[in-house]
């Protein structure tokens, strides 16, 4: 472990603590958090009882320390509707979201990488312009709309895909495309820039002068050098995919964390919402850290300089 990594680790720990603090205080934005946890039309006594039960009548700082201590023991509290531990409920939904995000990542990489390479290699041709349009569409289509269009076309009109729910391998295809589109566009853009940069390096004409065919140069030299930014972007994009899943899961009735979050807001089940937000932020912070570590491994300048 060198100083740079230690420093990044400490920063991430502070970010996690900060997130916990922020979430704690957001709860209190509305005034009394017990109001968030009771159904509308609760009586005054109900409110009083719950407040005492949950300890909201104590000083805020004491509540805050309690809250942090509880989270340190990985205890996310109890669902108000289902009377189950929030951790268990989240754990039961998490695999679906991970499955969907992984499938979307496959779609994004599988299409984004080749498209990006083609855009760079075929620069200023009609093909590039076509691909640019394709990428722009992927980037500007809101996922809830592309999801609906996919259902309209493949499920309603053609009837070849299930419209929603989880039922075998088929059912992940449409949501994965809807979720992966934006990430695909990002991959294509990053790959294009990286490949273009490598194309302008001196080793390219050198390799060609050596008698290597252009295609071989692209595959054996350029792609290997261009991989760095693509790998780092991947870590960040996984976080985006998980966040995007909230909307896609609602469109496709996919029983993951996103759907759970939306349902829990509607049911006023605040502990679950909070658990999902904390988990999501923790994952995002970890992925950010991972991206920086990856980057410092492949580019020692960052590590040695100490401050990025």
């Amino acid at each position: 472990m060198n100083r740079y990594l230690l420093r990044r680790l400490a920063q991430s720990a502070i970010a996690v603590l900060g997130t916990v603090t922020l979430v704690f205080f957001i709860q209190r934005l509305a005034g009394d958090p017990t109001l968030l946890m009771l159904p509308e039309g609760a009586t005054r006594e109900d409110i009083e009882t719950l407040r005492r039960q949950l300890g909201f009548d104590r000083p805020v700082i004491e509540q805050y320390l309690d809250y942090v201590w509880q989270l340190l023991r990985l205890d996310l509290g109890q669902s108000l509707v289902q009377r189950l531990a929030v951790g268990d409920i989240i754990a039961s939904r998490l695999p679906y979201t991970l499955y969907l995000a992984a499938a979307a990542l496959v779609v994004a990489l599988g299409i984004g990488l080749p498209v990006g390479v083609l855009m760079a290699v075929k620069r200023d041709t009609r093909l590039e312009r076509l691909l640019v349009a394709f990428v722009l569409i992927g980037q500007s289509m809101p996922t809830f709309w592309s999801g609906i269009l996919l259902i309209l076309f493949f499920a309603v009109t053609l009837g070849v895909m299930p419209a929603s729910g989880v039922d075998g391998f088929h059912s992940v295809i449409l949501p994965a495309i809807a979720l992966g589109a934006l990430t695909m566009a990002t991959f294509a853009r990053v790959t294009r820039t990286a490949v273009l940069e490598e194309l302008s390096r001196d080793y390219v004409p050198a390799a060609q002068a050596k008698g290597l065919r252009f295609r071989a140069v692209v595959f054996s030299h350029i792609l290997r050098n261009a991989a760095t930014p693509i790998i780092t972007v991947s870590a960040l994009e996984i976080a985006n995919l998980l966040a995007g899943a909230i909307i896609v899961e609602t469109v496709f009735a996919w029983p993951g964390l996103g759907q759970l979050a939306v349902q829990s807001i509607a049911a006023r089940d605040f502990p679950i919402v909070q658990g999902i937000v904390l988990l999501g932020s923790f994952v995002a912070i970890s992925l950010n850290l991972l991206a920086d570590i990856l980057y410092s491994v492949v580019d020692p300048r960052i590590r040695l300089e100490g401050r990025a």
């Binding site: 934005l29 968030l36 966040a243 807001i265 937000v277």
Partner: peptide, 22 residues
């Protein structure tokens, strides 16, 4: 530091929890 913290929470999640409260 506050910038880093707020940026590290996915925006949609931050929006969701705030809407859930407000």
């Amino acid at each position: 530091r506050l910038v880093d913290i707020v940026l590290s929470i996915p925006a949609i999640l931050l929006a969701i929890i705030t809407v859930a409260v407000l």
